[in-house]
Simulated assay, not measured.
Amino acid sequence: MLAGKHCVITGAAQGIGHAIVETFIAQGAEKIYAIDLNMDAMTDWQDHAIIQPVALNVCDRDAVSSWVQTLHQQNAPVDVLVNNAGITRDNLLTKMTESDWDAVIDVNLKGVFSMTQAIAPLMLEQEKGAIVTLSSVVGTDGNIGQTNYAASKGGVIAMTKTWSKELARHGAKIRANCVAPGFIETPMTANLPEKVIDMMKAKTPLGRMGTAQDIADAICFLASDKASFITGQTLKVDGGLVI
């Protein structure tokens, strides 16, 4: 599905990001730049023939720009960008601190903007590419205690719709889409109380939490040429949680 593709994946070290990397390999990707700050979690990939671990902070615009410029100087193509890096700092509106607001917006929204802004010129030069960004059903429908997260994930949907129009204006085959997960089994949800997990399962028509693989498969499809006529869309992968 991804044969010959050169891919950049942020937040690659664990959870959904790790599953994306492994799925892309299974689907024939030729090169994967696995971006994360947690290099210890990527030691198994250090000598991998396909994966190149990259220590990079998506919030550091200068570092992002410098790294992408290196790719350009090496004439390294980027066929797929997956904006997966994200954090949460949950609290009620009346209790949320400015630092918690800033941290989530910086990673989840500005980080996505910075990575895409840096890589888009490479795709425009190639006149092709696929951008897939992780949003959330919280970004489409909101959630108590997640004002910052909802704003960031709603923001990436709006940016994605804009990019789908802007980057294809002059005939370039560049697509931009979002995947909006529902309640997913990840390290971020592993420590939730069992009663909370049971409640979310009960609210989900398919009766279970999603897996990182469920999300990775959806991203792989949107990144592939099988989705060549799909752009500007947000695909909910939530077991029917939000309908």
Rank of each mutant, 00 (worst) to 15 (best):
K5D: 07
K161W: 02
L122C: 09
V78I: 11
C59Q: 14
T204A: 11
G145K: 11
V179G: 06
P193V: 03
M39F: 03
V80Y: 03
G232Q: 06
V80R: 10
R169V: 07
N143D: 11
C59M: 15
N84K: 02
K236M: 03
T140M: 13
G240F: 02
A118D: 00
K128E: 08
V80N: 13
V104P: 07
L92D: 01
A55K: 15
G4E: 06
T10Q: 06
D225T: 10
Q213S: 10
V8N: 09
I16M: 09
S152R: 10
K195S: 12
W67V: 09
D40C: 10
D100S: 07
M209C: 02
D214I: 00
K173N: 13
C220E: 10
I131C: 11
T231Q: 08
T160I: 05
L235P: 10
G210Y: 02
G139H: 00
K203P: 15
I184T: 13
E166M: 10
H72Y: 08
W101C: 09
S135D: 07
P53S: 12
A13V: 11
I230E: 11
W101F: 12
L134E: 06
T160H: 01
I230R: 11
S152C: 09
E194T: 15
Y33P: 02
E98G: 07
T231E: 03
D60I: 00
E185L: 01
I131L: 13
K31E: 02
L71T: 01
I16P: 12
R89E: 03
V104L: 02
D79H: 12
V112R: 04
T23C: 09
R89M: 09
D90Q: 10
G207Q: 06
